[in-house]
């Protein structure tokens, strides 16, 4: 608990009902339009500094006691904040997690170590939140697939070529595979497993 500012524990979504509704609709739009960057409304306060507000908003909106969460090293200290607000248990193994938070820059865990879903129930797979420093200005890749009218260029920062390769492999597993939410500050973009990636990575 030491890393946590206790006075901020009680804060979260300004309005749990309407705040989470707005955040969810933004997430839904993002999943329905992969690679498009959305601004999250200002509905949240008291977020631990390690966590971009978009990641915090997504977790508060989607997680609860039914969704074990796996946190990569840089985010382990947010656990008390997360438990206080969502009641979500921690998942020891990446493969047991419904949600996970990883760092684009310091990723030390492969996408394939998370739950991939199974053939009969591909929806059981993990949803990953990928923390970046910006969703623009990085090495561009081209996206194609459901939700994308023609193609779209997506260029989040900090993504190593190896991670893009893993994301491309993830898509090849379709209908299995994880779904990704890229966040930076109050912005987010989604990359569901159905999205095909091409480019120089």
């Amino acid at each position: 608990m030491s890393a946590l500012d206790h006075s901020s524990l009680a804060m979260g979504l300004a309005d749990p009902v309407f705040g989470s509704q707005l955040v969810f609709r933004t997430l839904l739009k993002a999943f329905a339009a992969p690679g498009t960057i959305f601004d999250l409304p200002e509905t949240i306060s008291g977020v631990p500094e390690q966590l971009p507000s978009a990641a915090a908003a997504a977790l508060l909106t989607m997680a609860d006691y039914e969704t074990p969460i796996w946190l990569a090293k840089p985010f382990e200290s947010i656990r008390p904040w997360l438990v206080f607000h969502t009641g979500a248990s921690s998942s020891r193994e990446p493969a047991e997690a419904k949600f996970a938070v990883i760092s684009a820059e310091h990723s030390d865990v492969s996408l394939s170590s998370f739950h991939q879903g199974d053939e009969r129930y591909p929806d059981l797979s993990t949803t990953l939140i990928v923390v970046c420093s910006s969703l623009e200005g990085g090495r561009p890749v081209t996206l194609d697939g459901p939700g994308i009218k023609d193609t779209i260029v997506f260029a989040p920062k900090d993504i190593k070529p190896a991670l893009w390769a893993e994301i491309a492999e993830n898509n090849a597993l379709f209908p299995l595979g994880v779904d990704l939410i890229f966040v930076a500050g109050a912005k987010l973009a989604a990359l569901p497993r159905s999205t095909q990636i091409s480019g120089d990575f």
Partner: peptide, 14 residues
């Protein structure tokens, strides 16, 4: 609502 919302995101992804 959260449970339904989670199902909706997975549905859109697949």
């Amino acid at each position: 609502k959260r449970m339904i919302r989670r199902a909706l995101l997975k549905a859109v992804a697949i």
